[in-house]
Structures are given as C-alpha cells and as structure tokens.
Design a protein around this nucleic acid. Sequence first.
RNA 1: GCUGAUGUAGCUCAGGGGUAGAGCACUUCCUUGGUAAGGAAGAGGUCACGGGUUCAAUUCCCGUCAUUAGCUCCA
Length: 646
Amino acid sequence: MIKITLPDGSIREVAAGTTALDIATSISEGLARNVLSANINGEIWDATRPITTDSSLSLLTWNDKDGKNTMWHSSAHLMAEALEALYPGIKLAIGPPIENGFYYDVDFGEHAFGDGDFKKVEDKMLELARQKNKFERTEISKQDAVSYFKEKNDPYKLELLEDLEDGNITFYTQGGFTDLCRGPHIPHTGFIKAVKIMTVAGAYWRGDENNKQLTRVYGITFPKNKELTAYLHMLEEAKKRDHRKLGKELGLFTFSQKVGQGLPLWLPKGTDLRERLIDFLKKAQEKTGYVQVATPHIGHKDLYVTSGHYEKYGADSFQPIKTPNEGEEFLLKPMNCPHHCEIFNAEPRSYKDLPLRFAEFGTVYRYEQSGELHGLTRVRGFTQDDAHIFCTKDQVEQEFKKVIDIIKFVFKALDFKEYTAQISLRDQEDRTKYIGSEENWEQAEQAIIKTTQEAELNTVVEYGEAAFYGPKLDFMVKDAIGRSWQLGTIQVDYTLPERFELEYTGSDNQKHRPVMIHRAPFGSLERFVAVLIEHCGGKFPLWLTPQQVAILPISDKYNEYAENLSELLKNYDIRASVDARNEKIGRKIRDTEVEKIPYMLIIGEQEATENKVSVRKQGEGDLGSFSIEAFAEIINKEVEELTKFN
RNA sequence: GCUGAUGUAGCUCAGGGGUAGAGCACUUCCUUGGUAAGGAAGAGGUCACGGGUUCAAUUCCCGUCAUUAGCUCCA
C-alpha cells in the first residue's frame, strides 16, 4: 500500500500501481470524466500512469493551466496523426502546447499546405477524436527509438533523439500514431470535442534561419464546442479593439512611409490624450518628490560606451552620426539613464540630498528589426515616462513603496482592475552572473518582496529572471477581454552607479555609491496608449478622452445657444464641441456614439428657453434634463474621483 | 533580418491584358427635423514605386518599398 496526499491535506491509502484516474473515480464519476492529467509530487503525469510510491497528488482539469497544456499537447499529437493520414510521407518535427493552443512543425515536402487544407484537417481530427483512442506510454531504449524513426525516415526526430539520454526515452501512441514524447497526455482523444486550425506560418527547424524552413500549423482545441465559439468570439472582439484600427478611426495617430517605418505621428486628438497622460503622471510625481529634468535626443558615443549600452546593443542600433569637422560620434539616445547619471554627477551630492528623483518624458530611438514593428506597441521612436531614483541602499525599500503607489494609482485611474506583479530575482543556483555585492542584492530583493506584500499585490516570483544589474518588478495587466500585457516596471541597478562612478558623501564623511532605481509606470507612452485603447475599446475614461461632451443642436436655430454653452463649459474645464452640421438629431447622436464621446447634450427649443441641457450618455441613453451647473458638477466629480493622487 | 500573404478614392473593399467601380466620408443644394444613418447632385484615383514581357500592363513576370501573419530579437 502507498499513501497519496490530496491537495486538501487528506491522505488515502491505496495499492501501489493505482492511477490518478482511479483516485478521481473513487471521488466522483464526474470528476473522473474531467481529469486531463495529474500533478504528482510537482511533476505533471498522465492520469493513467501507475503511481508506485507515497506521493502528493492534485488532479488537473481544463480549469488548470497544466491541464490545458496537457490537452493541447495531446491535440498536437492528434493533429499530427490527422496530417499523416491526409498527407502521407510528411516529416514531423516538434509539436508543443502554447499559450492559446498548440502547433506542430511539419515538413510537407512538395505540398504547399495552406488555408484550403484546414477544414480537411479539422474533420479528420474530429473523426479520430471520436474514436476515443487511448494515449499509451511506452518506455523505450534509445536504440529501438532510433531504429523506429530510421524506419519511418524522419530526420527531425532522429536529430532530437541524439540529445536524449538512453533510459529516459518514452513514446506515446494513440490510434495508429506513435511519437517521441516526454508526455504527459490526456487519457484518450475523446476529450477533444472542438477543433480549429488557426493559421500556418513558416518556422525554421530549431529556430535557426540557416536550417530548413518548416510549416508551422497552429491549432486550438476545446472540451466543449461552446468554448470554441466563445474563443472565436473573443478573437473577433480583439480585432474590433485593435489599436491600429481604432487609432485610425478616432484620429489619434498615423504613420507615414516618408517619415519612416516605426515612427508614429501623433494627430491632434492623440496628442491631446498623450499630453493629458503626461500631466496626470507629472502631478502625481511632483507630490512624491520627483523633479523634472530634460536631456537632448542625442548623446556622445562615449556616454554609451561608459554605460555599457554601446557594447551590448551598438551593433544592432541606428549607427552613430558624426560631426562634419571633428568626426565626433553621437548616438540617437536609446536610454535616458546615462544622461541622468551625468546630471547626478553635475555636482557633489550629500546623503542629505538623497533620494534624488529625476523624471523625464524622454523620447528614445531604438533600431527594431523591420519585422518586429507593430502599430504603437513596437516602434523605433518612443517616449518613456522615465525616472531614475538615486538613493542609499537603506532607502530602496521606501522608494519601492512609493513607486508601487504611483503605479497602483495609474492603474486605478485607467481602470485596469486586474494585474499581477512579477518579481524577478537572481538565479538561486548560479549567482556569478550578477554584478553588485551579495549584501546589496539581498537587501534589494527582500525590499521588493516586503513592499509588494505590504501593497497587497498579487505577485509571482521568478527566480533567474532578474537583469544582470539588479532585481526588478514588472507589472502585468489584464485587459477587458482577458489578455495580459506587461506595462510598468521598476528595476534596481547596481551597475550604472558603478560605471558612472556616482558618489555621495555619507554622514560618516566618506564617499558612498548610491543605488539607482529605474522606473516607468506606463513603460512607454506609445505602448501604453496602445494597450489602453485595446483595454477600453476606444472608450477612454472621462478624464482622459480628448472630447468629453458633444453639444447637439436639434436644428440650426439653436446653434448659437449651443456655442455659448460650449464656451461656458470651458470655464468648468470641460472639453466640449458643437455639432452644427445640417443633420437630423438622430444622425448627430449616431455619429457621436460611434466616435465614443462620453456625453451628449441635446439642445432644442425647450432647453434654450429653460436654459437647461438634455443629457445623454454614450452607450446608456437619455439621462434627463439638468441645469448647466448641475451637469458640470457631474462631470467634474467623476473626473476628480479618478485623478486625485493621495 | 528571414518566410508567406497583401498594397485599387480619405476609409472599408469589389474588379480585371484594351488606361477603373461600390458603400461610407467629403462639397453644394433641398430639408429645420426631439434621442443611433432625411433627400438630390457633385467632386475625388500615375490602381505603392521601378523595371521587364506585350501592339497595349492597374491586371502577367522580376525587383524595391510599405503593411501584415509568424520566426528570430527587444536596453
């Protein structure tokens, strides 16, 4: 008999060789029908694999990330089986699960696999799935494995086998298909009820462009048809929210071939939004003791040689520009921090001056490969909401706390309700790859852990994800349709103070090296605006939106009253404009709704006589009649609630 | 950067070896209308750019540029 510890702490005694599925069955039939795999002592196993020693067990279903992965990994095998049946002679490479579904890299030989083939593959997969073929695990010797794939003439699997140790090799077979695979897999193919082949793309064997290009077939599967429908609906929704589309429709930004790839041009409305975001953050930062600095768009090459950026990124950057006479080399600024270090160095600093917080909305330029450019999320020129905090190592904790406060404030004002903080710490095994003293690291890492706890953040700790120059904290937000984006970041840096020989005089009258903290709540304005657009679907929060109110006269008889109203609202800091077009009110309302302007004021005979406004809210409809003062108060209250820091 | 797809009016797109079409937007006129599209007329295009094939290219071929889906990359 062996002991199995369940997640609730209860212990079951079962015969050795019992499977996770057996245990699920003993709990309930319903549970057993949903078990995809199991976590045995921290390893993911087949639910059908016999357990032979005392173990902890948790059953994994579609609701678990690992359960989904198992399902999708098995789906990749199912797709491979279908592809082999439909296109005999193809060679299979690798087929892992990914964030949304799975793929398989396939060498189709002469056949050009494309959209036209998808339906066929989906049908075949469903046909095979309905056979409820079991996934069977076999341990196999390396020699036998090699001869199997030699027989099958599959060069990719043979190459994979070269790197595997004998005694550690398993095959999985379902129906007529056998694949080299570590597993685990779902009990049988019948769990796969809905299948969609999404797309194909080229991918190099082992990610190396010198290797042969294979066809990567992407697919996704679900245990219920309904979930597939919901997923496809979500994709449609994402398309509608695409910031590139909305940015164009709402007149926020554009690109020009003449100006250059990846160089966004902000249109008046987009600039309004952007400036408003800047003001908003500046105000919060002023209250937290930041001071603004400003630095030029280029800097001497030596600056970046000192910072180390030239060595690391110089070759892949925009190349240096030279002065015509002296031939001195300058780089387009890829980072603000070296400039800020020199500002720190501009005068002798005392411990009494610290912390010093230099903030700059600094525009930087980075050469991104042309294939990487994407709307506003990946560009070659962008503005960081950058700041560098120079402090003593004892101040790191308090400074972290303040930065977290600002970031939380930003997320709240912009209605990002769900976010997690990823704490990136040193590799626990190998500490040689990091610069800075053990003591400093330890102190900073502890400060991050402590402050994130105190701030009651949802955190994930990732060991080995720290930058070589210091630990960091990244904020991942979930948008309105459940996608994750990385936005704000806080990073501790021990190397730049070292490289720039930053010093301050301590209370002991000795020279000390300050700690530097990089931080950017938005990350970059471009990327942040892109995420924000997709999050709110273009319906910006009232405080931020370029136009808050549209004044819609019923006919041109009331245009004058409307214009007066617009002027009056300016006194209340409300951004309004009049739609004086010769159109019917229904048309004006429709167009305003489409433009996603939050409030409409309908102005006609009645309003003009009574000196009132009829208020209509975007997406909601008629709110009734208000005096102008009352309306202004509603707007201003809503704005203030969201944008007040502290 | 690599591989594939795409590039036609301001926008969304149709078309196709004999120098172009729709809807929306725009302009003008009519209409003065009370909570999601009133009517009519008009204007608007070197069919991304450069070569080639052809009597003739926007259409076919090649190249360049850009966009896009992936791959690789991201201070």
